[in-house]
Each structure stands twice: as C-alpha cells, then as structure tokens.
C-alpha cells in the first residue's frame, strides 16, 4: 500500500535503503549526516539486518568491503571529512568490482570544514584514484532521498561499481513529503559468479586489489574504461523544465540549487520570460546528451552551483561547447535564494 509521511531527508534515505533491500550498514556519525545513521540504527534490527557503528570511518568502509565481497546490499554514509577517510576503501571497492551505496551529505570547506550547505564534494565524489569513476546520484527533494537508494543498488549491482548519493544538508536535514510503498519488492541480484559465498562444491572466487602483472593491469584498465563508456551510454539521467520552446536562458543546477533555480525559473515564466532549467540526476555519468538537447538554442547557459565551478568545469571537459556563466562562483555560507537566482538570470536576458 502506498502512503505519505513527513520525513527528514536523512531518515528518508534510511527508509529508502531498507526498502531497497539493504541489510547491512556500517558507519560513523558526522553532522549533517548523523540522522541517516541514527535512523538506520533504529530500523535495521526490525528488518533483521546488521547495523554497526564503527570506531572510525576507516573501520566502517573496511566493514563495508567485507559485506560487499559477499554480495550483500550494504550502505554507509558520511560527510566530507569522513569521505576523505573513505577514499582508500573506495579504491579497494573499485579494484574488486564490489557493489556498494555510499551517501555523502555535504558540508563546506576543506579539513573539518563548516556546517554550512555546500556542493563542494562534486569532484571527489565522481572520481576515485587510478582513473576510477563512482556513479553519482544527486537528489533534489525528500522523495528522491527515498527513491534513489533503490536506483543506486540497481546500478551498483548492474555494473559492480560504487554508487554515491550526494546531497546537501538542506535536503538532508529538512522534512518533506515522501510517498512510501510497503509492498515494494526490490530486485534480488545474481552474485553467484563472483561473491565470496564459500567455495564448497565449486571453484573458488578470486578477487585481488593488486595488479603487479602488466598484462592483468592493462586488461583491468581497459575493462574499467569500457564499463564507464557503457554507463555513459545507458545510464544518463536528468530532468528538463520549460526547455521545450527554445528558452533564451537555461539554468543548469542540481540538488538544492536546482530546487531554488526551479522556483526562480517558474517565477520568471509567470512574468513571461523564456527561461528553462536542466537538472542532472546522475552527475556521473553526466547526462550530456540531454544537456545538449535542452540548451541547443539557448542564448545563455547559467550554471548555478555552490562551488567554485566543479560541475561547470566537468561539463566543459566533456566537450560542452557553449559559453557558460557560473554563479555565484564560490561556495557561500547560505544557499542563494530564489530572488538572487532570478537576478542572475535577468542579467542575461
């Protein structure tokens, strides 16, 4: 049965994870992600799953590797400083081709950073050392926080790749409507060809994170890049609003910036201006085809993001050939409001 609840974004992630079949969670608390972990601690036992609050992020991500190696649906979550500590483990997950869903509720700045809203983890979320790529999903409302964990597991198991759900603290910490379905049946994935399930009666499965043999190393690199090309072909996801009538200005934004930009675009449409919004849902693979389509006749493209232009540089690097205006050009300590975004757009009209 479907029903609606008011959920905190971080709680919606936990509920969505359990609904998607996640039965293992290992993590370490950090603002603004802690309520995700706390809610997992509450609801995981009811789902007969395992929850462990580890002694550190380094321990947590290694516990995640253990569960992932067995083919289990496992999640963890953190914020920027913890994501820094996750990197070694994420590298190993890539080396082994283990599926996992990682949540990053971003905070601002380097080091321990600020507790302000931010979109500054874009670069570190889409990439991992050794030319590796994480699939990255960017929720913009509470419903996405509930729905995306299932998509994340589908992609993680389809490609045997880490998937990051990257959100900002406005969505993570605020409450909103979520439609839930208590009869939802998540996909059970066939892991029999690779999972470390005990080798009794079959050939043992070997998984290594070390590639000293040059032929093996080359083969691995080609396999990985081939996998990313497949993702780019099949998994680009995005939404376009008011982009069907060749708008003069198209705003490109994700997360809370897409939310506020949508409000700005809607207000300007009501005043008769031809403006549109393009919202990437996957940040890797980036939905370049839909971006090119949405902006093909636009006079101006405005990238609105709370960083010094990480997404902007990414689309440029992927060959986006239109001039792009970046706003606000840095990460301010509060989210630019609808009025501010309207003013940026009007400057271009």
């Amino acid at each position: 049965m479907k029903y609606t609840k008011l959920l905190k974004g971080n709680h919606a992630l936990a509920e969505g994870g359990i609904a998607a079949g996640c039965r293992y969670f290992f993590g370490y608390p950090i603002t603004p992600q802690s309520e995700f972990l706390e809610h997992m601690a509450e609801i995981m036992p009811e789902a007969n799953g395992e929850f462990v609050q580890a002694e550190s992020e380094v321990a947590a991500i290694n516990m995640v590797i253990g569960a992932a190696s067995c083919g289990a649906k496992v999640m963890t979550g953190t914020s920027g400083p913890g994501f820094d500590l996750f990197h070694e483990g994420i590298g190993n997950l890539h080396a082994h081709d283990f599926p996992v869903v990682i949540v990053d509720i971003m905070r601002g700045g380097p080091g321990n950073g600020s507790l302000h809203p931010s979109q500054q983890d874009y670069d570190v979320c889409i990439k991992s050392r050794g030319d590796m790529k994480n699939i990255v999903l960017a929720p913009w409302n509470h419903q996405d926080m509930y729905d995306l964990p299932n998509l994340a597991f589908e992609l993680a198991f389809k490609y045997r790749n880490p998937v990051v759900i990257m959100a900002d603290n406005v969505i993570g910490q605020s409450y909103g409507n979520v439609v839930m379905d208590d009869e939802f049946k998540p996909t059970e994935f066939d892991t029999s060809s690779w999972a470390m399930s005990g080798a009794k009666g079959r050939e043992r499965h070997l998984s290594i994170a070390h590639f000293p043999d040059p032929n093996v190393a080359n083969e691995m690199q080609h396999y990985k890049q081939g996998k990313y090309a497949e993702m780019a072909k099949n998994e680009q996801r995005s939404e376009s609003y008011y982009c069907d009538d060749d708008p003069e200005v198209v705003v490109v934004a994700y997360g809370i910036m897409a939310r506020n930009s949508y409000a700005a675009v809607k207000a300007l449409r009501e005043q008769g201006y031809k403006v549109g919004l393009f919202r990437p849902v996957t940040l890797f693979p980036y939905p370049m085809d839909a971006l090119n389509e949405a902006t093909k006749n636009a006079k101006h493209v405005l990238v609105a993001e709370m960083s010094a232009g990480q997404m902007c540089a990414d689309i440029k690097g992927r060959g986006f050939d239109k001039d792009v205006v970046l706003k606000p050009g840095f990460c301010p300590s509060s989210v630019p409001g609808t009025g501010e975004i309207e003013a940026w757009i009007k400057e271009l009209l």
């Binding site: 008011l6 302000h116 910490q173 409450y175």
Partner: peptide, 14 residues
C-alpha cells in the same frame, strides 16, 4: 500531510 497537502520544515542547525 494529514490533509493530503504538501509541506516542508527546515530546522536551523549548526
């Protein structure tokens, strides 16, 4: 939500 409408609540945090 009990009235089948939409709502958000954004707490101050930090």
């Amino acid at each position: 939500i009990n009235e089948e409408r939409e709502a958000t609540c954004l707490p101050a945090y930090g």
